[in-house]
């Protein structure tokens, strides 16, 4: 058999991909602008607060997806990173008089390093074992914070310095929106890069990926580091927007669980999924509360409704809301978002 002439196969496939990516990027920019214009349309500070918190949830869910969604290693321990980030920002401003920017950077870096270290220890565990090892992580962190109360200011938590916390709700919204856009941009950069493809390959078949020369350890640990860093950053932002924190609040297992649920019900392994999930699980209940359908978050009706939504989605749209759309025939095959 002789050598075939050079083909243009790969080039056309790649060009098509690039065109689609451009469409997404321009749409994304448009949505980013809308996000910044939104406060103009909100009628009061309370609504702005709700909007800020929705963005926080979305940001957290995207951060979770950067590791767990792409690599398939489900983490139930992101509350540990979230809480640690909140505590780093809290203690840095409260005890060490750092400014907000320095404190948030510290949250980002320290939690990133911590998450990588956790990865180093636990990522030898495959599949379910990793998931379960992370279950105890947040509890262990909380217990550590309780235990080191002379430094961490103990079980009852503390308030952040007033001059740092005292900002207009709008300012907090804009900061949160900026970081949400940053984390989504990072997510897209990862998803469309060969690094992202390597992560997905590990999710699909780790043994085959390794046999092709992909280092599972390096890929997974770095991804967990990035994911943890952003989770820590949003933890810091949470501490800042709330103004106070307690171990009970920031290390609550519900953070871990809700991130998993939002991301997977929104669309497992996709970037749009966690955004959809954030809307469904944070904004929707708030709208219902505002309209007096349910009285408060976590009351019985809320629990029943969320429970039933989860059951229905998992029975009829196993890939999650956006995930199912992406797998349908209306979506170009292999175009990941």
């Amino acid at each position: 058999m002789s050598l075939l002439p050079l083909t243009t196969l790969g080039t056309t496939a790649a060009a098509q991909l690039r065109r689609r990516q451009l469409v997404v990027i321009s749409t994304g920019m448009g949505m980013a602008i809308l996000l910044f214009a939104l406060p103009q349309f909100l009628s009061n500070a309370y609504q702005t607060k709700i909007a800020t918190e929705t963005l926080l949830y979305m940001g957290l869910a995207v951060s979770w997806t950067l590791f767990s969604g792409f690599s398939g290693y489900v983490s139930f321990g992101h509350a540990a990173f979230f809480g640690l980030g909140a505590y780093v920002t809290g203690l840095a401003t409260q005890r060490h008089d750092l400014g907000l920017v320095a404190a948030l950077s510290l949250s980002f870096l320290l939690v990133g390093a911590f998450a990588s270290a956790v990865g180093l220890l636990t990522l030898r565990l495959r599949g379910h074992y990793f998931a379960i090892a992370t279950l105890g992580l947040a509890e262990a962190m909380k217990a550590t914070v309780d235990w080191g109360h002379s430094y961490t200011l103990g079980t009852f938590g503390f308030a952040l310095p007033i001059d740092i916390v005292n900002r207009a709700q709008e300012t907090k919204y804009y900061v949160m929106a900026t970081f949400l856009i940053v984390v989504v941009a990072v997510g897209i950069a990862i998803l469309w890069s060969s690094y992202g493809l390597r992560l997905i390959a590990i999710r699909e078949d780790e043994i085959a990926a390794e046999a092709l020369g992909i280092s599972p350890a390096l890929t997974k640990i770095s991804a967990l580091g990035i994911s943890g860093a952003f989770t820590g950053l949003f933890g810091g932002l949470f501490a800042w927007t709330q103004g106070f924190l307690t171990p009970e609040a920031v290390f609550a297992p519900r953070w871990s669980l809700e991130l998993v649920v939002m991301s997977i019900v929104g669309g497992a392994g996709t970037l749009v999924g966690p955004l959809v999930g954030g809307l469904v699980f944070y904004l929707l209940p708030e709208v219902l509360i505002e309209n007096k359908v349910i009285l408060q978050r976590r009351d019985e009706l809320y629990l029943m409704m969320v429970g039933i939504v989860l059951i229905i989605v998992m029975l009829f749209a196993k890939q999650g809301i956006f995930g199912t759309l992406q797998r349908s025939r209306f979506w170009p095959k292999g175009f990941r978002l």
């Binding site: 060969s194 493809l197 046999a211 292999g334």
Partner: peptide
């Protein structure tokens, strides 16, 4: 052991990255 939820294109470019390939 192919990567089932990746396209053939992605399977072929996973190691070296689409851009270079």
């Amino acid at each position: 052991r192919v990567f089932p939820q990746m396209t053939v294109f992605e399977n072929l470019t996973v190691r070296s990255g689409a851009r270079r390939v």
